[in-house]
């Protein structure tokens, strides 16, 4: 049990967090920016949840994922603002990252959609739940999934043919 938080009685079973570390980390890796450490997202999400009364959370796994999704979204906004400010300053230093080509293909997919792909196609989650987890409407999620699959397949087929 978690102790040491003054004045808080939101006690949690830490084994629950340990058990959810791996799946939450995978989710964080998918939805986080390419320059965001998944563990940092997980850590911050854990911290936020530790401050919430456990009895108020129905499904801890989904709750953590939503927090991770929101944190990741926030971080992207912050970085975009920063990039925008940098551009206004006339700094022409571009961000160039190096990845294996199949991973850079994934990077070209909007992070929430990339995460949807992972949840539905790898983890086998129903679209309804996956869409809710990443904060998308179901119809949008369906269309996004179809297009992402199509795009990814086309890109990977192109690469396989090279």
């Amino acid at each position: 049990m978690l102790d040491g938080l003054d004045g808080l009685e939101y006690r949690h079973d830490l084994d629950e967090f340990r058990a959810l570390y791996e799946p939450t980390r995978r989710f964080a890796a998918m939805i986080g920016g390419h320059d965001v450490e998944p563990d940092d997202l997980v850590q911050e999400a854990f911290a936020r949840v530790l401050l919430v009364e456990r009895s108020r959370i129905d499904d801890l796994g989904r709750y953590l994922r939503r927090i991770v999704a929101n944190l990741a979204h926030n971080e992207r906004r912050r970085l975009r603002r920063k990039a925008s400010a940098t551009a206004r300053l006339g700094d022409d230093v571009a961000t160039i990252d190096r990845y294996p080509s199949d991973l850079s293909d994934l990077l070209q997919i909007e992070p929430r959609v990339r995460c949807l792909l992972y949840l539905v196609d790898v983890e086998g989650e129903p679209i309804a739940i996956a869409a809710d987890t990443v904060g998308m409407a179901q119809p949008s999620a369906r269309m996004a999934l179809t297009r992402a699959r199509r795009r990814l397949k086309a890109t990977l087929s192109e690469e396989a043919g090279r």
């Binding site: 978690l2 890796a29 854990f46 994934l106 992972y118």
Partner: peptide
């Protein structure tokens, strides 16, 4: 590719992350 992307980054492990999260909380 999705699986590889899901396992990216430096893994600190559940205990280390949890301990840091407690401090952060």
């Amino acid at each position: 590719a999705l699986r590889r992307w899901a396992s990216r980054g430096t893994r600190r492990g559940s205990d280390a992350v949890l301990a840091a999260a407690q401090a952060r909380a």
